[in-house]
Design a binder for these strands. Sequence first.
RNA 1: GCCGGGGUGGCGGAACGGGUGAGACGCGCCUGCCUUAAAAGCAGGUGUCCCUUCGUGGGGCGUGCGGGUUCGAGUCCCGCCCCCGGCCCCA
Length: 806
Amino acid sequence: MDRYDAQQIESKWQQVWADAHAFEVPNPAPGETDLRPKSYVLEQLPYPSGTLHMGHMLVYTIGDVVTRFRARNGLNVLHPQGFDSFGLPAENAALNAGGPPRETTERNIEHIKRSMRRAGWAYDWTRELSTHKPDYYRWQQWQFLRFFERGLAYRKGAPVKWCPNDQTVVANEQVQDGRCERCGAEVESRLMEQWFFRITDYAQALLDDLDTVDWPESIKARQRNWIGRSEGAEIMFRIEELGEDVPVFTTRPDTLHGATFFVLAPEHELVERIDSEEVRDYVRRTGAKKTAERAAAAEKTGVFTGLHAVNPVNGERLPVYVADYVLTDYGTGAIMAVPAHDQRDFDFAAAFELPVRQVVKPPEADVDESVAYVEHAEGEVLVNSAEFDGLPAPEGGRRIVEKLEAEGRGRFAINFRLRDWGFSRQRYWGSPIPIVYCDGCGIVPVQDEELPVLLPEVEDYRPKGRPPLAQVEEWVNVPCPRCGRPAERETETMDTFVDSSWYFLRYCDARNDEAPFDRTAVDYWNPVDLYIGGVDHATMHMIYARFWVKVLNDMGMLGFREPFARFYSNGWVTVGKVKMSKRAGNVVGPDHFIERYGADACRLNILFLGPANEDMEWTETSVEAMARFVRRLWRVVNEVAEQAPSGPPESGELARKAHRTIAKATDDIGRRYAFNTAISAVMELVNELSRDTGGRDARFAAETAVSVIQPYAPHVAEELWERLGHERLWEQPWPAADPALLEVDTVEVVVQVNGRIRDRLHVAPDTSDEELVALARRSEKVQAYLDGGEAARTVVVPGKLVNFVT
RNA sequence: GCCGGGGUGGCGGAACGGGUGAGACGCGCCUGCCUUAAAAGCAGGUGUCCCUUCGUGGGGCGUGCGGGUUCGAGUCCCGCCCCCGGCCCCA
């Protein structure tokens, strides 16, 4: 027997697969139907900002196991791969490396592709895409123009989060604890003109359709959190001195009579009309505050404006304050303050000595205005609320809104936390936005025939506050597409989340140069049957992509409403319980381990560490263990190949074990996504096989072990399959377990007396209940415990136990 | 605060519609074989405590804590404790 040589075997089979175009999956030709059901298996594509790490190893191996398993189970499987190559990570990587982003990015892509091939992942590379390539972003620009025509992409001035380090606007979602998610710098608030997608139009649909997808509950919960739907009312207050109506949103219209003051956010548009040095000073100070400071402030701050707001329900004049505990980007940026029933209002009232008036009273309690009553109790009623006194609070709230509605001063309303998606970036490395600004015509879209608007090569792409593209005069200055007079191009670029909002559609028709994709192709493959990726993309990317698909569906470009029918979220790979990440500086790459132990051992290892949807601890000893297992498999199967006779199995215990292994692995991979336990099952089989490698059953067991481990360790499986006298394992049907052979010859049946085990019987699995009881009763040990008496009740679980209850 | 997910040996983890003896599989550790030696490999042992005429012997306790349902609970119910993650001046 020759020695196991991972490198030699793996490169051999990788070459065989490439030559055979083994994983290339053409779209069905027009008019033809593939009889196999389709399956679209997709993993989130990588940012080529460096090399692969163990997190990638995990996600891509999961996808690969499922792909290979499904292909052998008669499905037509699409499994493409590409690169999310635009955006800040790639650009920052280029800045660090000191070259142009295109060069570093493309170098990284080549490196990653080599690693991916070396790992043996079965991709259809004919569909490869990179989002920084003009043939990709051309169609993104095209789709942007369709969004723009429909008013779904628009420009507005808005307070935005500005990262002083990256010198760009970042999305709210990219801010963590007041810091830039990418670089960790504290973000500032600025008012800027921005491009937005009108995702809020789809808030309700995004919420409702979560019920139609098969995702982990935790991921759905995150999206629901993010969308943040709350029901309440919008109530109109008149600012007396300005003669302006200001709406407020409240979830507690029942407490309207308890409003004792009124607060505007410092950024509220009315604030600049207030002629007060004190107010201007406060707004200035607040603006200088970092978002994080503002949220963390223990003491409520604010300033009286001299204005008054009229409460529409009772005509009371409430003093108007400006205070930064009211946020400009939630609700309407103004609130009615009810200190008796809101902790924040209560704190503010305490600091500014404002009155507190309780209007909701829990049953059997006196009115107590020394604390805020914010919880809810069954049977609470309204007090101090004029004609609504005594009504249960929920009903009272309803009646109050109805009354205001009749007067045109209020209505039931639903508010979402979700904001429109600001997607323009003041950076270089992204898709240009195909827009031209003309003094005469305003915002003018670039004509479809002019696409793509190519990203020009620039000398200096470092961010300086102004978009780097603004410095490229020969690029910026163009004639207006509408009137032909001198005009200027949009110099901001698109957020990389735009790129990843539709890449899974492009894979279906990746070489189309007449449209983003053909609807037939996209409708054939989609929705993605299994989407695999990290929880970190559960909110942003996966909400944007859902939005994108809904819009395209409304445009009639595709025939489905949800992109990802099922989502599998992989856990983190940890080192000493710390997430493996660039930031933590504990990244271990697969390349070194693949070189040392082989891709098969590494693939097995990453899935054997634990359940793939939970965090798993990386240890080097476990790779060694898997390398040991592969060598053991190699030795045992080679032995069988050399000495075991061919011929139909004899259905002995070893053959039965093989059938049980098939059954377990099929269920573990196909239904449960329990990748670790399927490996254990094969290990058990190999352990048993190693004790007896000589018979026909041994040959069958060896073939089974090789066949079942193939999705995990495809190279060594293919080599051993060949040595067992067969070929092209990757195309062989997945083995089927014979139900008749799943049972062992004899089973051990436990005999209990009152739930205590007293004896064991060894019987055939199909022994009848009556027979079991008779056998059990005959046992001396049981007799002793029954003590001559009779069982009041006898419980029989066939093949498992007999329990006498006295 | 609200929401989601978890607590099982020295470690990672099994036990998948309550059905035996929990702890599969692997790591680590211990003993032995092979070897001049090492590596690799092979065989066996490994929750815990007690009794033992040491026998492939007997028994108690064990799945975060306290109750409960059941002939039978890691699994179901009630009440706690702790850990991880998400959204939070969200009006």
